[in-house]
């Protein structure tokens, strides 16, 4: 009798532990397996971009192409004014990231920390531009830039970034509201102006949130397709994202070249995300974006 209870006591933790272990293993399998499912398109693209055309449809499929065919990249590169596309993209992206971040931070500070009569009514305007579809402004904006003789230049892609972007203003404002007010009150007593408070107190505390909107800006501008498509005309004036569109028609079913082009577009994004990811995830967790 005594022996069986002792045995039961000994056995139960074992069963429990076994149950916990299977659950852990199952969890790892799902998390890791799922991440490979998600990365599969990217792996597959990398593989294809380094495969000989004649090896694309071999059965069983080649998983790691050896030796890698770097030549695909050379062929792809020479098939369009790739350098000008990259140059244009870099101009647009670097200007946009700086301009959008600086103006959005300053505007958000105005909405979060200064007081004037119309402030909250104007903030409804910010929310409205987030909610209203950009499709409506597409045509008028094009006509405005057409009138200004800026079609087929980069200006229509640069000028709108000088005025702050509603979504980033929203994120930054929500974040600023979480910072303790006592900090800027203390600075105010010391005689600091708003600009000094923003620079010396608020910005140093907001690095993750600022990094978040900078990454968003980089991603959105680098991947932007519709705006460059409607504003830019000549092949050498295009940005990389739109330029690669011609690969689809030109290379048709030469998937190894198509994938080499896609790599060109994707690798800078992956690098940027890796560099910023710690700040980025923290930033999103901190800003507490919610309705």
């Amino acid at each position: 009798m005594a022996a069986t209870t002792a045995e039961a006591q000994r056995r139960r933790p074992v069963a429990l532990r076994a149950f916990r272990w299977t659950r852990r293993i199952l969890l790892y399998l799902i998390v890791v397996g799922g991440s490979f499912v998600y990365m599969y398109p990217v792996f597959f693209m990398l593989r294809t971009s380094l495969t000989k055309e004649s090896d694309l449809y071999v059965v069983p499929p080649i998983i790691v192409p050896l030796p890698p065919v770097w030549e695909n990249y050379a062929i792809m590169w020479q098939n369009g004014p790739t350098w000008s596309w990259i140059k244009n993209s870099l101009i647009v992206v670097s200007f946009s990231v700086v301009a959008e971040t600086v103006t959005s931070v300053s505007v958000a500070y105005g909405f979060a920390r200064t007081r004037f009569a119309a402030r909250d009514k104007l903030f409804i305007g910010v929310l409205a531009t987030m909610m209203l579809p950009g499709a409506v402004t597409l045509i008028p904006r094009w006509l405005i830039f057409h009138r200004l003789d800026m079609i087929d230049t980069l200006w229509p892609l640069l000028i709108p970034r000088l005025f702050g972007t509603a979504f980033y203003i929203f994120i930054m404002r929500q974040f600023f509201l979480t910072l303790p007010r006592e900090l800027d009150d203390a600075a105010r007593i010391d005689g600091a102006s708003h600009l000094q408070i923003l620079r010396k107190v608020v910005i140093p505390l907001s690095v993750p949130a600022i990094a978040t909107i900078a990454v968003f800006s980089f991603m959105n501008r680098w991947n932007d397709f519709l705006e460059p498509l409607i504003y830019l005309l000549r092949t050498e004036n295009l940005t990389l994202a739109v330029g690669l569109r011609f690969f689809v028609s030109r290379f048709g079913t030469e998937y190894h070249l198509l994938m080499a082009g896609a790599m060109l577009l994707i690798v800078p994004m992956i690098i940027a995300f890796f560099l910023a990811q710690k700040q980025f995830i923290r930033g999103i967790a901190l800003t507490g974006i919610k309705g």
């Binding site: 991947n223 932007d224 397709f225 896609a262 994004m269 992956i270």
Partner: peptide, 9 residues
């Protein structure tokens, strides 16, 4: 990452 690389790529 697939979201980061959304759009054309």
């Amino acid at each position: 990452i697939p979201s980061v690389t959304s759009g054309v790529g």
